[in-house]
């Protein structure tokens, strides 16, 4: 049976088949629980990624401003190494190393996965933030400092609020990527959404229905977030030319 007839079947005649594949023997619970795992992983990874990314970006920016500081130089070296390692290795490999090497003695897969995805996305987030901060005219920093504001206050009150406009949309896209990235959680025996689809495929000898269902769920989440990001973008653009 070719793909087109399967699609037609999916949306029409195969309704009872769909029901039996997805809902037989409580299989829909696999999907629901998988979705929970995916959302859980995404949510906490995003938080960890944002925290790490912010810290790393601030270290890099501070080092550029004060190249003479030994502490910043050391921190910057670590930060650069971190970003390069994360960006230079596949996420699946990172996940496997975290599970079987770093946390070999732990069986808290969720924690391991959240840490892996968080650390992974932190590297990308830091680059997004650094670019956003650097895009703010240096004259803004000089104006702040010339008023006697500290480096910290200048960053917090003047540079970051402007940088956010450059950062948020890119950050939104980063999170969308992250959500899709969590689909490799099955590699360490976590039953996320993707894994749930695969388990149903295995149990029912039916690949099309569960996998397409899973794909559609991802699509809905991603499209929803994309919509949110573009709404945010528009709101920020509006405040950009405030009159």
């Amino acid at each position: 049976m070719n793909i087109f007839s399967r699609i037609i079947e999916f949306f029409s005649g195969g309704f009872s088949r769909i029901v039996s594949v997805l809902f037989g023997r409580g299989r829909w619970m696999l999907i629901v629980n998988g979705l929970k795992v995916t959302l859980l992983l995404s949510f906490f990874s995003v938080i960890i990624g944002t925290v790490i990314g912010t810290v790393v970006a601030l270290i890099k920016v501070a080092y550029v401003n004060r190249p003479k500081s030994k502490v910043l130089k050391a921190l910057n070296t670590v930060a650069t190494l971190y970003v390069n390692v994360v960006r230079g290795t596949p996420t699946v490999v990172q996940l496997l190393i975290m599970n079987f090497v770093v946390f070999a003695s732990s069986s808290n897969m969720i924690l391991i996965a959240v840490l892996t995805f968080g650390i992974n996305s932190g590297a990308y987030v830091s680059e997004v933030m650094r670019a956003g901060i650097n895009a703010v005219d240096y004259g803004q920093t000089e104006a702040g400092r010339s008023l006697g504001l500290s480096e910290y206050d200048t960053m917090k009150e003047i540079v970051l609020p402007q940088a956010i406009k450059n950062i948020l949309p890119a950050l939104g896209n980063e999170f969308i990527t992250l959500i899709k990235e969590t689909s490799i959680a099955g590699y360490i025996a976590l039953q996320d959404l993707t894994k749930a689809g695969d388990l149903i495929r295995f149990a029912t000898y039916e690949a099309f229905i569960p996998l397409i269902t899973v794909a559609l769920i991802y699509l809905v989440i991603v499209l929803g977030l994309t919509k949110l990001v573009s709404m945010l973008e528009r709101r920020l653009a509006k405040s950009d030319n405030r009159r």
Binding site: D137, G139, Q140, E142, A143, G144, R145, S146, L147, G148, I158, P161, Q162, S239, D240, R242
Partner: peptide, 17 residues
């Protein structure tokens, strides 16, 4: 020290936000 020294720049550098 800078609190007691005002500075005006060629490009104003007002805070746009």
């Amino acid at each position: 020290v800078r609190r007691r020294m005002g500075m005006v720049f060629q490009n104003f550098n007002l805070f746009p936000h």
